[in-house]
Write a protein that binds this DNA or RNA. Structure first.
Lengths: 221, 221
DNA sequence: ACCCAGTCTGAAACTTGTTCTAGATTAGCG
DNA sequence: CGCTAATCTAGAACAAGTTTCAGACTGGGT
């Protein structure tokens, strides 16, 4: 009951980063929230995780420190919310020009590589978001879970399977997600090259059956 | 040229956590280092990452704060070194009673599940070490890389392949490592069950060819 | 035994995430 | 409009990682 596999390509993107629960926020509040996320993105793009300093975010978005903490109870919450935001945008972009390859595994690999190129364009921002994501403790699990669901949705969209995904496919998707996150980290900390990330992504996408159900056979000549 | 695939089952364990480079440390210094790591392990086992406070580690190991920082330039360095230590012990244990399954993939899965059970015994310690590992920035990449090499060695040992590993197998091992780390994190932050981690590990181990790897021109026994 | 260089100690200072408080502002409501 | 509760602001205060510094200690060479 974790992953909602039903209709993956749904409204998620447009309402991204809407808290869903809680009071519906006035207009000024919505604006404040946006300003905060904007400032965060800007600071993160400059210098990564360390450059996102709560006092600066507050000042830069014209909000008191206490207010910032009312909106986002910690730096990690703030950066994870930023990631939700960015993922939403990415998902929207991907929906417009979905990958074309006939092979589902290749489509997923293409999609992830596109996301990876987006990260390469803003490596510092990627650093801030991904580090926050993996550093998050239990108090952020709801938000991190949301990010995870978004990522799953993106991958399932790329697979573009006709019916609902089977449990094996969901396992494969989870492993792909694991690899995606971890490969990203090794790249961000300079321990793996871009080429290596590409290879890892392509390797793990091999877990997706080339077309239909039968288990792993002989491949990769 | 990143992963040294040559003889995996080698001396690594016994000399674990030896800095290799730098001056050879006097006896008292070696003792200090050990005391520090011990204190770290003890504190981490209690309350995880947050419970490892540098001042406490220093006091608890009978060392001045400045000295602690001379030995380990940051909290993350300290915890990554602790992980090196623990991994070394684990590797030694595993060498004594290696997994028995005839299938390489199953052996790797078994090995990782054994490691996972070790983590379940000390979840707080695991939390501290893994969070440090994934939070580490470039300044720790050398140490993190060492941990990565150790992990790779453990997995290659479990595979127990006759000759040196081919590039495809090394890719598979890297993906397995990614999955291992990331699955661990999702478990530690309460977003995945033990059962789910097991499934993910078994799924990713499917990337290992069921029996042999023919790439380098050998036959398939 | 003496001296030098490097190491260790103890304590204070600095940084940045986080919390708290008192007063100003705003939103909703009769 | 005037009231009340919630929210926002400014700023101090606190916590823990990190740095710095002056002085004590250690080990090795002469």
């Amino acid at each position: 009951m974790t992953t909602e596999s039903k209709s993956a390509m749904t409204s998620v993107a447009s309402m991204a980063s809407t808290p869903a629960s809680g009071s519906p926020l006035t207009e000024r509040q919505e604006a404040r929230r946006r300003r905060i996320l904007q400032a965060t993105t800007r600071l993160a793009s400059r210098g990564g995780f360390d450059a996102v300093q709560m006092r600066e975010v507050a000042e830069s978005s014209g909000v008191a420190l206490g207010t910032l903490y009312r909106y986002f109870p910690s730096k990690v919450h703030l950066l994870v919310a930023t990631m939700q935001d960015q993922l939403g945008q990415l998902h929207a972009t991907l929906c417009k020009r979905p990958p074309t390859d006939p092979d589902p595994a290749a489509r997923v690999a293409q999609t992830l590589m596109r996301a990876f190129r987006a990260m390469q364009r803003e490596p510092h921002l990627a650093d801030a978001m991904v580090r926050a994501l993996t550093f998050a403790d239990r108090s952020v699990s709801a938000e991190v879970d949301m990010v995870s669901r978004l990522t799953t949705a993106i991958i399932l969209d790329a697979m573009g399977l006709p019916g609902p995904a089977g449990p094996e496919q969901l396992s494969a998707v989870r492993v792909i997600e694991h690899t995606w996150h971890s490969a990203l980290i090794t790249w961000l900390s300079g321990r793996a090259s871009i080429a290596q990330v590409k290879i890892d992504i392509e390797t793990v996408c091999g877990l997706i059956g080339p077309a239909a159900g039968p288990p792993a056979g002989a491949d990769t000549p």
